[in-house]
Simulated assay, not measured.
Amino acid sequence: MVFSKRVLIVDDDSGLRELLGEQFVVNDAFTVDAAATGAAALGLATASHFDAIILDAGLPDIDGCQVLRQLRQARVRCPIVLLIEEGEDSEAQAEAGLAAGASACVAKPFRLGALLARVNAELRQHERSEDAAVAIGPYTFHAGLKTLVNDATGVRIRLTDKEAAILSYLYRAGDRVISRSLLLENVWGYNAHVTTHTLETHIYRLRRKIEPIPGEANLLITEAGGYRLVL
């Protein structure tokens, strides 16, 4: 099952936000949130998980590159496509954007299809990189192999498909809390037969496998709004 990707569009032009939103949701591959300012974007992107962000460089309150730096400092790992103005300064803008953490820069005006293709390409590249081994606490996590390897002992822990998917999603979220409903949506999809009890059961079994101290939640933490990983 293929789930919708969640995209945040940040631009002070309401017409462009609406047009981009319509383009992204037309084939049900994306769900869209929008923000008109850098401050709003920072609030949304650091409080929740997005699969991609489209960010205008010329926001009314905070320079787009500064927003980029703050997002990367807050461990927002998803692809961020920076929209820059075509002109004499476009090359300098692109260099500044890439230095601040942009995954790609696209100059305005652009063709909607070209921007959608760029976002999809960045998502595919990001997903391939996420399949690489990453560090989670005392383990090396191989998402594609659905295994954790204890770095000190070499012991290999096998994970189920759902356990690996939960870890992958929480890892991509950095240190942000992910709600139960968002985990259910992205790991199981929209399914009336799946409840939060199912998720809690999987979390319980996953903790029994990965927590260094049995009975203590030091890696996979329960918060008031959901769950987060301590990386």
Rank of each mutant, 00 (worst) to 15 (best):
I54D: 00
G189N: 15
A165R: 09
L159W: 07
P212D: 06
A94W: 00
N27C: 09
R176Q: 14
E223W: 12
E85H: 04
V119K: 02
Y139I: 06
S48H: 10
L220F: 09
R180A: 11
Y171S: 11
H49V: 08
E85C: 05
Q70E: 15
I54A: 00
V177D: 15
L19D: 00
E211T: 04
F3Q: 13
A192E: 15
P214G: 04
D151T: 15
Y227V: 10
F50E: 05
R156L: 12
A94M: 07
S129L: 04
A45Y: 08
R156G: 09
D131I: 13
A143H: 09
V194G: 10
P109A: 04
E86A: 13
R77C: 01
I166A: 07
R205Q: 13
G15A: 00
L231R: 14
A35F: 04
L199G: 06
L59N: 03
A57P: 02
G137S: 06
I213N: 05
A39H: 12
V177S: 15
L115Q: 00
R17C: 01
E91D: 14
K5I: 04
Q23R: 00
A107H: 09
E127V: 09
R77F: 01
T140H: 09
A94F: 03
L184F: 08
A35R: 01
T195F: 06
E127I: 08
R72T: 08
T160Q: 11
A47I: 13
L170K: 10
R111A: 06
D33F: 05
F110H: 03
H197F: 11
G137N: 07
G225L: 13
I54R: 00
K209G: 07
F3G: 11
